[in-house]
Every structure is written in C-alpha cells, then in structure tokens.
Design a protein around this nucleic acid. Structure first.
Lengths: 215, 215, 215, 215
DNA sequence: GATGAATGAGTCTTCATTCAT
DNA sequence: GATGAATGAAGACTCATTCAT
C-alpha cells in the first residue's frame, strides 16, 4: 500500500491501454505514442508512471497472464461436474475471436519474448498451471465415474492445453478455417476420445454466467 | 532467368543469413546490420539485392515455409506404410531443438505478422497443406487396414497439426518440460488413440536417412 | 518588506538547498528535482517561490558571492595588525576542503557563466573586492612598518587573489598535491617574498574564533 | 592504424568542431546539434563516428590537454636561455584573449568534470606537467647564473602555474581588468621578485616565431 | 558489383513548467 | 500555502536507406 490510490489507478489505466496497444501492434513494435494515445494521455505521462517502456510491457505481460488464468479458474471451480468443468475450461481457454485483446496480447508475447529469463519463466508457468488445471478435472471425472482415460492423465491434459494454444493462435490470426466454434469442436472431439465420455459437447449447459462482461 | 546467375546466388546467401538473424531476433527486431553481419557483407549490399528490408523478410518467410513443407513431403512420400509415414511426418514437423533455425524462424513470424494479408494467407496455407498431408496419410492407413479412425479424418489431421504447432513453440522456447522427444510421445499417443493403431511408436524403423544434415 | 515573513524564510531555505545541489552537480546540470529533494519539499514548490530555475540560480550565485566576501571582511576587520589580517584573509579565502559547499558553488559558477552579462559582472566584482581588500591590508602593513613591498601594492594584491583562486580550484577538485594547508603555505610564501615580512606564517595566532560554525 | 585514414580525418574534424562548440557552450550545455552544425554535417553523422556524446567530449578534452602542453613544450625547448624560456612559457601558457578556443575549452572543462575519475586524473596531470616544466626552467636559470631563488623552486614553479591558471580564467571571461598583457606583467613581476632577475620582461626578444599560425 | 560514409526521420526519455486541488 | 499529477518541448540515439566511388 506504499503507492497512493491514484497512482495505482492511473497505472492500471495505462496497463489496460498498453494491453490494447500490444494486442494491435505486438510488443516489439508498439510505441509509447500508441499507448499514450490509447490511454488518452500525453506521451510524457507514460514515463511519469513507468520508468521506461520495458517496465510497462513487463507489467502488461504479467497481468495478462494472471488475468487469463484467474478467469479460467473462477469459471471452472464454480462447477462441480467434471464434464461441465472440462467444457467450461476449454470454452474460456480459447479467445472469443480475433478481437479478444487479452488472449491476443498473450500470443503476441509468446513469440517475442526478449532474452529476459524471468519473462520466459512466466510463460512456462502459465502452461504448467493450465496443465495442472486439466489434470485435476480429469481426475475428478474419473472419480465421478464419467471418464475412462485412454492415456495417462498428464498426457491428455498436456494435449488439451496444446490444442488450445494452437487453435487460439489461429483464431487470433483470423483464420477462416479455425474459428472459436470449430476449435471447441475439435478439442472436445479429442476429449471425448481420450476420456471415453460422449457427454463432452460444446453446448453442455453451464450453470454460471456464460460471459463475464467485466472483461 | 532474367536475373544473372550471381545475382541469384547472392540473394540466396542473404536470405539464408536473414533467416538466421530472424531466428535470433525475430522479424520485428532484426536489423539490416544483423543480416549483413550474418552474411559477412557490407550493410549497403543488402539494399543492393533487395529493395528494402521488408522485401527481404517476405522472401525469408516464403522460403522458410516452402523449405519446411518440402522437407516433410520428401520424407513422407519416400515411405509407403502409412504408419511409417505418420511417424516420419510427426518427427520432422517438430523442431529438433531450440536451435532449429528453420522452424524457429517460422514461429517467430507466426506471432508477428504485419497487417500484410498476403503473408497472413501464407501461414494459413502452410497449416492447410499440413492438414492435407495428414489426411492423406490417415486415408492410406485406413486403406491399408492399419488405422480405424475414432473421429473424422479431418478432425484428427487438424488436431495432429495443432499439437505439432503447440509443442513446436515450446521446444523453440527451450521449455524444460516439452522436449522434442516428449512432444513426439504426446503426439503419437494421441495418434494411437485416434487411429486405434498401437504400432505408432517413436522408434518405428524409418527406411530413409534419419537426419538430413543439410538443414 | 513586501514579501511576507514566511515567504522569505522559505526562499532562504530553497536557496540553501540549491547551493548544496549546485555544489554537487554544477549549475548546468542541476535539476529542479535535485533542489526540491535537498530542501525536502515537493517539486512544484520550487516554482511557487521562484519564477523559474534561472531566477533561483541567480539568487544562489548572488548570495554565495556576498556570503563569501562578507565572511572574509568580518574576519579581517576584526583584527588590527596587518600581518594578522593578511594571514586571516588568506586563510578564509581558501576552501576548507573538497566539501566546502560555499566555495565549491562559487567555482562551479565561474566556468559556467551563461551569456548573462549581469552575472559576469558579479564575478569580476568579486575579484575586484578581494583585490581591494588585500590592497588595504598591504597599505596598513606598510604604515605599521611591517611590510616593505617589492612590487606595486596593486600587483601584489592581484597576485594574492589570483593564487587563492587557482589553489581554491585545486582544493575543490580534491587535488592530492594542493591541499588547504599546502595552498596556504604557498600563498604566504609569496606574501613573505613580496612584503619582505617573515612573520607571515600559517599558524599566526588569530584573535577571533578560528571557525565560523554557521557555514 | 586499425582505423582507415578517412575515419581518422573525419573524427579529427569532428573533434575540432566539438572543441569550438564546447568553447562556446561548455561541456555541460553543448548539444549534438551544436557540434554537427559547427562541423557542417548532419546530426546522425556525429554518432557515426562516436558512440555517444560523452565519448566525443572525452576525446575533445584529451586532445585539448595534449595540444596545450605540446605547444608550450615546443616553444620552451626551442630556447636555451632560461630567461627566454620562462618568458616564453608564461607567454604561451596564457590564452591569447577571450576567443582562444583551445584554452577556453580547457577552462570550460575544469569546473565541470563529471564524476569520471579518469578525467579528473587528466587535469591534475596537466598541472603537474606544467609545474615540472617551470621547475626545469628555474633550475636551468640557477645553473646559468641568471636566477637566485627566494623560495624553493617547487614553490615558485607551483605559484607561477597557479597565477597562469587564475589569470587565464579571467582572460577567458573577458575581464576588463586582466587582459593577456596585464596577466603577463603580473606573472613576470612575481617571477622577477622570486628569481631576483630583472631581465624577465614581456618584450624579451624571442628567437622563435612568436605565433604558431597553425593553431 | 559492392561498399560504407552520410543522412534524417522516427523514437524514447528527460525535465522545467503549469495548474487544479 | 503547497503539492504532485500531467504536460510537451527538447534532445540523444538508432537505424533503414541513399549514393558517390
């Protein structure tokens, strides 16, 4: 709580603006001017709150990772049936579309990590956390008697995350073949095969609010 | 043959150098100086052979895509058993390791596509071609009686390519969890499940030279 | 008394802080932030009391000159024997050491006079006043029968001031050769030669407080 | 000789231009644009030859010190009579006038040395070398029977250098009192007193070219 | 054919100054 | 009275591109 309240709010505003700007231009090409414009402030103001562009970008990345994972966790843990959990997890692991800024930003960073090992560790951590999430879901599903795994749980979980990653990139890139819906079908198709559970369908009724409007 | 012979050789040399440079710095951060240094020529020479940096980068991307796919096609079509084909395809769709310049360059581009729609079309095309390749393999496998598909061939093929993409990115990023070997296991694990064919193992004897030294 | 009392006190506080800051960074490199920090006030406050940085710096210079000369005058006029006067004057014309902020500030300005002719006049005035001071001492010494001048009084006085200037700069620059003590010896050596008075020794008993604690 | 000839020439040209610019604005206020303008080149060109402004400024300082001392050494060693040597040394240790760029640059640096200890060592070295020069002259004069020293040779030499420093600063600052001629008189006045040699006059015939046109 | 000197547009960054509170 | 958030002008530095040789 060292920072006064306004400082924090302004920084958050700039991080949000920077996220939009990175989503659009990528971390390697984004300019301070892009961020300032997106935030509606003068260029000098960016440096009033952040030492330099790198510090701001690191913050953008860190928060994107956290928000992305937090969002999923909240969605998944609100459900009890493993089948619901799995479908929900797949659903919100994928970008809504080419304009999903949060996920888009994440992908932009993924191929442009500077030599900073800290940042590289972050991305590995994100993947690991997702794998662990799916592992838990699979184990719950087995315990509930819904799933019968054809491969080790770790392998299935890893593959699910891998497919999400890959299709997410396509969705972000505005692929005409892989849309959000098609990606979900493909992932659940694999999930059905790997768990032997035919109930894993995209339109599986979800108990929670299907879309978090505040994000 | 409008271009003189030397012209062509020099351009190829520069494209090769640029590929190395992009592999290292990414297309958004690579400098003309990096490329000239990598090629062992003067800076001005780059513009003697290419209108501007963008033209060179486009060429780098185009050739990387072509070489990547050509490599796989050659490997796969040299085999006749669909099981061999599938294992070989998976094998050479993955980067050897973090230093695989060709694949690394491809991934670098994937998250940094400029607004150029032509280049965006290219990457979609690459994915499509790979999917078609796997589709063919799956159909041959069915015809040969080795495979019994649990999902539509298109879906399986798409998933296989997706997994390759995802794990390739991890390998390139020097992930400690997903190595080339682990990725191959995971992909073949899925392939076995989806085709019902237990013969799809990483060490499946390959008839061709296991490693092409020239890239 | 147009200015309210507090106003005056605050300005003095800022001038003192600015003197410290200039002593450290030099007038050309000192920043408003340095001064505000040194004074323990907010940055904006500097402009509340001074139109701009230049005005404050001019004030710093003016006061440094005045304080420097006032200090000497007080010391010298408190003594009656011309020999004591001369030794005391030499003593307090030199910086105590590299950390003598007042003199350090003066020297910092000396080589960084802006094109402002007013400020240039100030420094000439300072030198002149010192020369006049020494002239008076020499004449008193002659009258008292202690000194027998080998050159015109003006020349000796000018040379004494010149030597003080030169050695002061070395002391401020942390010279290992020219310390405060060595400088005093050299100056008095010249003074003995020029006045033919062997009594001009550094440790000549001084009747006043040897050190003014308030600056 | 690693650097090609043109590189060297261009760098020298820029150092000369930078010397002029520093002479005018001081090292703390000189801008890259000032230097580029003085050299008649574009701003970017400055960075083509020097890593950054600091590197160029360091070079300016180094060369000014060297040239200044070399000039004196040449003049002094061309004479054999110690009286001529002393007068010549004093003559060319002083700036010709307010526009003497070489000396002006030197003085500009003297009060604005950054925290760089290397540069601080340089200035001490310059003073030391000058003192040694005068020491030699004094000893020769004694040996030739012209001088009879009233103080230790080291003290006289140090004082002579001190006076030169002090008056040089005044000349540079366009003092109306201390001109080149007046400074020379004062210094030689002291020299006559300290050496007991009445022959040390400003207009002492000098055997060499009185002014080096190429500097 | 090739070079590398030279350029200047584009960016980041610093910091004096303003002003609402 | 004082503050510190916010600004924008100024300046250093980078680097793609040009061009004379």
């Amino acid at each position: 709580m060292a920072r006064p309240k306004n400082q924090t709010a302004r920084r958050a505003q700039l991080v949000a603006a920077a996220t939009r700007a990175v989503s659009k231009h990528g971390p390697a090409r984004v300019r301070v001017a892009d961020i300032a414009d997106a935030a509606g402030v003068a260029r000098g103001s960016v440096h009033y709150y952040f030492q330099d562009l790198d510090e701001l970008l690191r913050q953008v990345y860190k928060e994107a990772v956290d928000r992305f994972f937090t969002r999923r966790m909240a969605r998944v843990s609100a459900l009890s049936d493993a089948r619901d959990k799995l479908v929900a997890s797949a659903h919100c692991g994928l970008p809504h579309g080419p304009d999903d800024e949060l996920v888009r930003t994440l992908y932009r960073f993924s191929s442009d990590l500077p030599d900073d090992p800290v940042q590289q560790a972050h991305i590995e951590g994100l993947t690991d956390r997702q794998v662990v999430l799916y592992m838990g879901i699979l184990e719950v599903g087995v315990a509930q008697g819904h799933f019968r795994l054809s491969e080790p749980a770790l392998d299935i979980a890893t593959n699910l995350v891998g497919l999400e990653d890959a299709y997410g990139l396509h969705i972000i890139a505005s692929s005409s073949v892989i849309t959000n819906r098609r990606a979900l079908d493909l992932i659940l198709g694999y999930a059905r095969t790997a768990t032997g559970c035919a109930d894993l369908t995209p339109d599986r009724p979800t108990a929670v609010t299907p879309e978090d409007p505040a994000q």
